[in-house]
Structures are given as structure tokens and as C-alpha cells.
Design a protein around this nucleic acid. Structure first.
Lengths: 334, 334
DNA sequence: CTGAAAGCGCTTACAG
DNA sequence: CTGAAAGCGCTTACAG
């Protein structure tokens, strides 16, 4: 741990003023191109790295953004964190993570802690059913267009519609939607989208895992085999996690997917392209969403927000048709 | 964005010195219990929050630790990040994340960037097959006991042994191990552990997904059905992701798991307790591992490291027997 | 185009 | 037990 030179050390060594070194390094203020070049080279040789603490104290900006997810353990977290980190890096910011340990009441605390640590702004992916009030700092919320305060989201409704259309084209008219939590705006958007694609004479039912588990216990069977025998030809899950659960339950019961019954998910989670059959799903454009969220917060930090900027954006989703969906079987039983 | 009061503001308002307020807030230095209490109360009323920048500049410590994973998109990332964040918070530190965007050559860059941003130390989960040299800063590496510079790891070998023993007790004598990457020390530890549990006359083969995909393409079938017909009664995957792949491939081919063939994984990933059948797996004690890694780095930061502290620790793993494993079938075919 | 000076908010010896 | 003073490293007006 050799002590690293400060800006003043560099200035002294080069025989110039601290202000000039600062200007050279940050490319601000007036400085001749020649001097700038020399100073930068010599500074690099000396191993000079600007002190973020010094800069933060002087400018009042830490250069960090906080990222708070209701539950870090969510399977989408890797995608989100990676996209946010990359976007922030592109804008010259670092990402500080906060975890509310799955407890909604701690969500606010996690946010406060990040702000106390100096985060210039916060990006929040709230837990379903929870709202984020004003935190007195620049923030962006990634959730659903229905969520008050939402900044940017995937177009979940259209994503659902794409799934619906895909199934219609394959001839499905009797479909069961599998939801997780009823208080999730995102899931409702997706479900409404799916429904909107079907004609009014299609048979569509919705089952909620939270209801089923209330009776059967966590991880219990969903009773899908019976539903197939009653005529359902496709299961539309609001998440690849639920889709995986459905797929394995059906396969275990001896059904051929997609020969006898189709299954779809959402989010293109890590396993979806590796299981057998591979899962038809809908993908969010996380890099795009992250870029919008990050740039939105940064504009707030720089007081560059116009009213137009605050609008509730939604980013298109992309259907990825894979092996788990196929033509609706004409004979219902076998 | 109301301007928050500084320590000096508080001092002026209360008619005491800045030093006294500082002592009261940080519980350092000599200060009477009464005064300390009053100052703390009044400071809280005023909405005083210490400036991390000011403190960082003065003390030379940012209060942040960097967390670098070779690939943030790894399905274990949620577990790791959550455990590290929680441990760091318990020690009063914040976590800054870095992503090397899946590229090993950027791993070093990601680390450097975090250090430039002021991280007091770094916790690294390196990509398989890569090593982390000295970075001139306190760091802890979480990987495998075999990895040079490793600080703490799960006892992967013993975890493998537990899986092996479990299968032996169920009567399995013909087993196929499914690995991912040959250059992963973690995977080798696990595989060696599995093998060590079996007697020398057991039939054990190892297949590597990277080899199979080289021929068949990403996400191709692994050819497990044929192996079952040749006598394999259990598949041991080094990760739940591979185990899931094996399970779905077998179920799709019409095999009953665990009736005809058993499957095991590693890491207890998010879906493992929700699929059908639920997956037998081995879990790492991430909170414990995180606590050791974090406290190790912090001791380095505080120059409290003794030689004893540097030792290469391993933390026990826990077998979680679920539905995907059962007695070995006596008739090989059906 | 370059420099001298002030000050961001804090903590740490050092006096008293 | 409490206070006055210095200084961490930087950037920003302001002079020159």
C-alpha cells in the first residue's frame, strides 16, 4: 500500500499550480493543449489517481448511484444489476447496492442508508404492491406503467399480447394463465396483455400461485394435469420461474411439451435456453431500460430535468419463440 | 433537496465546538454522557447526517468495499451479493459492484475501477480458471481451496462427498457426473469429492458440457437417455443449472425421476425447491462465507492481519435431500 | 493561458 | 471533559 501522490504532489513535482493540474486532468477550464498533454503523461507516470473523496467533498457529488431491489435474491437481479452497472459506468458513475432483505418495511431503510452513504441518486425496483414515496433525492423507479412514480418499464402489456398472439397463431383457444402475486402491477399488465390478444369466445382462466400455495404449501403441485384433461392446451406463466415449475410438473405427469400442451414464460431467465424443451419467453430490453433509468437520475442530479423528461416511458419487449410452444393438439386426450 | 446541516452548523447552533459534536456523534474521544446525549438528540432533530465525503477525506477511508464477480449474470450472484451486502452492512460498510461483462481480461479493469472510486478493499469471486494477482489493496478471494490466493470457500470437496454418500446409501453404483468447465477448480473439487465417496468397483464417468456443446452447439441435448439405457442410475451435476438441464432432458425422454433415474445438483439455486420433482442439492453457507470474506478484508484495512488470519478457510456445505433422488432401480430397462 | 487562495465537512492530536 | 486549529485532496471563481 504505497501512498499515492496527491494532485498537489503532482503540481509540485511538475512546477505548476494545483489548479492547472486539476484542469489538465478534468479537461475543464482553459489550458493549452501542450501543457495538458504533458501534465497528463507525467501524472500517469507518477501513478496519480484523483481522490474521489476530495472531489466529492468539494463538488458535493459522490459519483455513486444507489441500486435498491426489494429482494436481491430475485432471479432477475443479475440481469438488472448488470445492465444498471454497465449503464452507470458508461455515464461515469458507480453503483452501490442496497438490500431490504425481502422485507418491504426495510425497503425505505435501505434507500436511506444508501443516501446517507452519499449516493447522488437512487434507482429502485420496488417490491410488488409497494410504493416509493418522495425520498428527497433524485430517483428513478423501474416497475410498471401502472405504478405511481414509475419512471421506465418494459411494455409488459404488449409483451403479454405478443405471447397471446403467438399462441393464437398456433391454434390455442383454451389457455390458463399462471400468476404469482395478485398485488403485482407488472403481473397484471402482462396478464391483461395476454387476454387482450384472444377473441371473446376463447376460454381463459387465471390461477394464482399464492392462492394455491396457501392451501397446498410452498412448492406444492399446481394441479395442471387435471386442467389439461379438461381441455387447456397452453399455460402462460408470468415468469420463467413459474413456467419452469409448470413445465416440470407437466413433464413429470407424462405430458409431452409442446406436443400435448404448450408452456410460455417471461423474462428469459438464465435457464430458459438450456432446459429441454427450451422455453418460449418474452425478454425485456434491460440495457435500454437501465440506460433510461440511469440517465434520468443523472439529469435530475444535474438539474437538467424538464417536464418532458419525467414521462413514464415503456420499452418494447421481444418474444423469443422456442421449443416449449407448438400447435394446439386437435385431440384433447390420449 | 433542502441543504442538510453540516457538523459545524450543529456545533454553532448548540454553542459547542465542532470537535465535541464529532465526538458525540462518533462516540470517540472523551465526552460526558449527558452532553453526548443532548448533542445527539439535537443533531437528529436538525436532520444532521454526517458527510461521508468529509469523513472519507479526513480519515482516508471511504467505507466501501468493492464486490467483483467475473460475471454478474451468474445464477449464484443473487445469493452472493445478498450475503456480502448483509455482512458488509453489519460491519458498517457499503458495497460497490463491479462487472467484468463476462470477459476475464476486463476482470482486472473492473477491480481497478472500484479502487479508483475509493473502495477500501475488494472481494472477488474470480472466473473459473483465472487468477487474481496482487492488487495493492486489501482483498479477499472466494473460490476454491485449490485457487492460489483463495481466502475462503465452501468445502466443495466434502459437499461432493456428501452427494456421493447419499447416492451410495440409495444403492447407486453406476453414476455419471456432469461438469461444465474443465478449468474450474470449484468443479474439480466437487467432482473429486463425489468420486471419493464411491468404492473402486463403482462405475463412474464424467461428461463435460463444454465438450458436448463444442460438437452439438449451445443448449444441445446431452445424450443422457442412452446412458440410462446403458446402466447409469444417477446423474450428479456440479451445478443446479446443469442438473435442471439433465432433469428436463430425462423427463422429456419419458424417464421417471427419481423412479428410474436420480439427479442431483449443487448450490440450491432459486428454482430447485419449486420444480417437480424438487432437486436434491448441496448448499453453501453463503452468510458464513460472506462474513469471513468481509471481516478478513476489514482486518486488512485496519492492519490487524496476523499470519493466522490469512489462512485458506473452508466452510461446510449442507446436503439437502429432496425428491429428485431415490433408490437405484434394480431392473435397468423398462 | 496560468496561479494564489478559499473552502467543501470532517477528525485528530494537542492545549487547556 | 471541552475547544481551537490544522489539514485531508480537490475545484472554483477570481486575478493576472
Amino acid at each position: 500500500m504505497k501512498p499515492r501522490p496527491s494532485l498537489n504532489d503532482v503540481a509540485k513535482t511538475l512546477g505548476v499550480s494545483a489548479a492547472t493540474v486539476s484542469n489538465a486532468v478534468s479537461s475543464k477550464g482553459r489550458i493549452s493543449a501542450d501543457l495538458k498533454k504533458t501534465i497528463r503523461e507525467r501524472a500517469a507516470e507518477m501513478g496519480y489517481v484523483p481522490s474521489s473523496a476530495g472531489r466529492a467533498l468539494r463538488t458535493g457529488r459522490s459519483g455513486f448511484l444507489g441500486l435498491v431491489l426489494a429482494d436481491i435474491a430475485h432471479p432477475l437481479f443479475p440481469q438488472i444489476a448488470q445492465a444498471i452497472e454497465n449503464a452507470a459506468t458508461d455515464f461515469g458513475y458507480g453503483i452501490l447496492i442496497g438490500d431490504s432483505r425481502g422485507d418491504v418495511s426495510i425497503q425505505k431503510k435501505a434507500i436511506d442508508r444508501l443516501i446517507e452513504r452519499g449516493a447522488d441518486g437512487v434507482i429502485i425496483v420496488p417490491r410488488h404492491g409497494s410504493q416509493v414515496g418522495d425520498i428527497g433525492r433524485p430517483m428513478a423507479v423501474i416497475d410498471s406503467e401502472m405504478t405511481p412514480g414509475n419512471t421506465v418499464s418494459a411494455d409488459h402489456r404488449d409483451g403479454g399480447k405478443q405471447v397471446g398472439k403467438h399462441l393464437i397463431e398456433l391454434g390455442h383457444r383454451n389457455v390458463a394463465i399462471i400468476g404469482g402475486f395478485k398485488d403485482s402491477n407488472v403481473q397484471h399488465d402482462r396478464i391483461n396483455g395476454v387476454k387482450s390478444a384472444f377473441p371473446s369466445d376463447a376460454e381463459i382462466q387465471t390461477l394464482w400461485i399464492e392462492d394455491i400455495e396457501l392451501e397446498g404449501g410452498t412448492g406444492c403441485e399446481l394441479g395442471l394435469a387435471r386442467m389439461v384433461s379438461e381441455g387447456v392446451t397452453a399455460f402462460v406463466a408470468v415468469s420463467d420461474l413459474h413456467a419452469l415449475r409448470a413445465l416440470t410438473e407437466l413433464q413429470r405427469a407424462g405430458f409431452d411439451v409442446p406436443g400435448q400442451v404448450s408452456v410460455t414464460g417471461f423474462d428469459d431467465l438464465i435457464w430458459s435456453n438450456v432446459i429441454s424443451p427450451t422455453m418460449t419467453t418474452v425478454r425485456m430490453d434491460m440495457p435500454k431500460i437501465a440506460e433510461i433509468a440511469v440517465s434520468n437520475v443523472i439529469r435530475q442530479i444535474n438539474d437538467e430535468m424538464t417536464d418532458e423528461d419525467r414521462q413514464n416511458l415503456s420499452v418494447p419487449m421481444t418474444l423469443i419463440a422456442r421449443q416449449s410452444t407448438g400447435p394446439a393438439p386437435t385431440t384433447l386426450k390420449n
